[in-house]
């Protein structure tokens, strides 16, 4: 019974990770990935590793989506610029 939290959070991680793979558009994928980062941090906390959870929170909730969105933006802008030149 005491492990119910762990089971619930593990199920959430599984569902979120599957969703992150299933979503195709990179911008929407970044949204799911940021939720995944937060849920993973909860999993680490529930498994009594809050130090790992802290770094996962910092990386997962803000940094990963930022890098992804900046990359998507740069790629789109470059594609648009090329289209104009041709």
């Amino acid at each position: 019974m005491a492990d119910a939290v762990i089971v619930v959070v593990l199920l959430l991680v599984g569902a979120t990770a599957t969703t992150a793979v299933a979503v195709r558009d990179p911008a929407r994928q970044a949204l799911v990935l940021s939720v995944l980062g937060v849920v993973l941090a909860v999993l680490f906390t529930v498994l009594q590793a809050p130090d790992v959870g802290l770094s996962q929170l910092a990386v997962g909730s803000a940094l990963t989506p930022l890098l992804l969105l900046l990359t998507v933006r740069k790629v789109r802008r470059r594609a648009r610029g090329k289209g104009r030149q041709e």
Partner: peptide, 19 residues
């Protein structure tokens, strides 16, 4: 463990502002 909630309360809105 409260530190985790503190970090999330700070970084969660930052992530949303990025979006």
């Amino acid at each position: 463990y409260v530190d985790l909630a503190l970090v999330l309360a700070l970084l969660g809105p930052v992530g949303t502002l990025v979006f």
